[in-house]
Simulated assay, not measured.
Amino acid sequence: MSYAASAAPKKFTQKQAHYQPIPKSGQRCQTCALWQPPTDCQQVEGPVSPAGWCILYVRKS
């Protein structure tokens, strides 16, 4: 029995995260701590734009 699939963290859908492909109030994916270049996020499914934004935004320290 494989546990790899169940061990993978569940990501939010873009809809659940209120993702939008444009920045909001100067906040954008590429300045977020969850950003994984070139188009991935640790918490949101699917490709995301470097210029995008969602409610999970956390500024990189």
Rank of each mutant, 00 (worst) to 15 (best):
G46L: 05
P47I: 03
K15P: 00
Q14K: 12
W53K: 03
T13F: 06
T31E: 03
L34F: 13
C29G: 05
K24W: 12
I22N: 06
P37N: 10
Q43D: 02
A51M: 14
Q16P: 00
R59C: 08
Q16L: 07
P23E: 09
A17Q: 00
P23L: 06
A33N: 02
Y3E: 13
P50M: 10
Q42I: 03
K10S: 10
D40A: 14
S49C: 08
R28Y: 13
A7T: 12
T31M: 07
Y57V: 03
C41G: 01
V58A: 14
F12D: 01
W35C: 00
S61K: 14
Q36A: 11
P38D: 08
P38C: 03
K11S: 06
Q16D: 11
L56S: 06
C41Q: 08
F12G: 00
F12M: 11
H18R: 14
A4C: 04
A33M: 10
P9Q: 09
K15M: 04
G26F: 08
L34K: 10
H18W: 00
W35S: 01
A5C: 10
P47N: 14
S49D: 14
T13I: 11
T13V: 03
V48R: 15
C32A: 09
A51Y: 02
Y57A: 02
H18Y: 03
P38T: 06
V44T: 04
S61D: 14
Q42M: 14
A8M: 13
A17K: 00
I22G: 04
D40R: 14
G46N: 05
K10H: 09
W35Q: 09
G52R: 09
T39S: 10
K24G: 00
T31P: 00
Y19E: 00
L34Y: 15
T39A: 10
A4R: 13
C32M: 15
G26H: 04
K15A: 07
A33V: 06
W53T: 01
K15I: 02
T39L: 05
A4V: 11
G26E: 06
K24I: 08
C54G: 05
T13K: 11
K24S: 07
P37A: 14
Q30T: 09
T39Q: 13
K10G: 05
W35A: 12
P21W: 05
